[in-house]
Amino acid sequence: MTHSALPRLTLERLWQFSLQYYGDRRIKDACLKLQNVYGGNVNLLLLLKWLDEQKLALNQQDLVALNRALQRSETLLIQYRELRRQLKKEVPDSLYRESLQFELLLEKQQQSDLVDCINQLNLSKTSSAKLTQIYCEQLSADSLVAIFNPSA
């Protein structure tokens, strides 16, 4: 299948998919566990889930490129998230909510970096959607596979 025949990912498409998918309480809890316990990146997982649903495949070099695309924002995001958690008990609720909104902007920027990267890659169709499973296994988060891929 040619590259042009594949679904083109836009930031808005990934963001809306992410909001809907992450809106499931079980998924949200699993994503937070992936992030906080296993050191995974939720935005990368959400992108991989979107790719799985589109039945699109990545190779190892593609995954390296995606991880490189994350590097620009990942350190800032991790530091900001930690600062926000520390401030939670010390600032008024309104200021804390504003800090959450700013963190969401950082998350969206990270998704933008991922979308820019994915649109540079030559994706191909696949019959087996296993990217989220592979990512979880790489992080030794095997217990989360059944949540992200109920049919696995």
Rank of each mutant, 00 (worst) to 15 (best):
V91R: 05
R97P: 00
I78M: 04
R85K: 14
Q101F: 01
K88G: 15
S94A: 13
E98S: 08
R81G: 07
E98W: 07
V91F: 03
L76K: 09
E74D: 13
S99V: 04
F102I: 04
R85Q: 10
R97W: 03
E82W: 09
K88C: 10
L76W: 02
N67W: 12
F102K: 02
R68A: 13
R85F: 03
E90M: 05
P92C: 01
R84F: 03
S99K: 08
L76V: 14
E98H: 02
A69D: 13
L77Q: 11
S94Y: 06
Q79I: 00
I78K: 04
Q86Y: 07
E74N: 13
Q79G: 06
T75S: 14
E82H: 15
E98P: 02
D93A: 10
R68I: 09
E82K: 13
R81Q: 15
N67F: 11
K89N: 07
I78C: 05
T75Q: 09
I78Y: 02
L100K: 05
E90T: 08
E90L: 12
L87V: 04
Q101R: 09
Q71H: 15
L95I: 08
L87F: 01
E74S: 10
K89R: 07
D93R: 13
T75W: 00
K89A: 15
N67S: 14
L76I: 12
L83C: 08
E74Q: 15
N67I: 12
S94F: 07
Q86D: 10
S73Y: 08
A69L: 12
S99W: 07
S73I: 09
Y96K: 00
E90H: 06
L83S: 05
V91Q: 03
E98Y: 05
Y96T: 07
I78G: 02
D93S: 09
R84Y: 02
V91L: 06
R81E: 08
P92Q: 01
Y80V: 07
S99D: 04
Y96L: 14
Q101S: 04
R97Y: 08
R85A: 07
L76M: 12
Q101L: 06
Q86G: 06
Q71Y: 13
S99A: 14
R84A: 03
F102C: 03
L100F: 02
I78L: 15
L95S: 12
V91H: 00
R72H: 10
